[in-house]
Amino acid sequence: MKKIAVYSILIAMLVATVMTIQYAYAQDNFKGEVISLDSYIMGGTGKVAKDKAKTLADAGHAIVFKSGNKIYFVYNEDGSFAGKRLANFATAELVGIVGKTKTVHGLNIIVVSMIDAI
């Protein structure tokens, strides 16, 4: 019985380690554009000027990333929301993000590792 418990713990630790490593290296590439969620929901394209995007982000409005038909909320690796960071790219035609993606309660999230206009 003791042996089974020890083996179970070891297997659990191994699985956790493998999942951690896999998660750490599961970086995906995303191409898309930075938009204002308010504008997009109200039926527009979501594209706003850089200054407008910065103002919106400063006021707490969501600046998000649209890739294909998906809208992503982008977070920095320190856990902070990256809306203000995204706002700098509002006028860029195409933006690239390298990061990890996950879905939380139906919301699409990217934890950004690198971002730049492409």
């Binding site: 590439n29 191409k31 700098n88 690239g96 390298v98 690198m114 730049d116 492409i118």
Partner: peptide, 14 residues
């Protein structure tokens, strides 16, 4: 864009 000035290898997205 207020990011570091980085130049990437050709295989990169960037």
């Amino acid at each position: 864009y207020n990011e570091d000035i980085n130049l990437f290898e050709r295989a990169s997205l960037f």
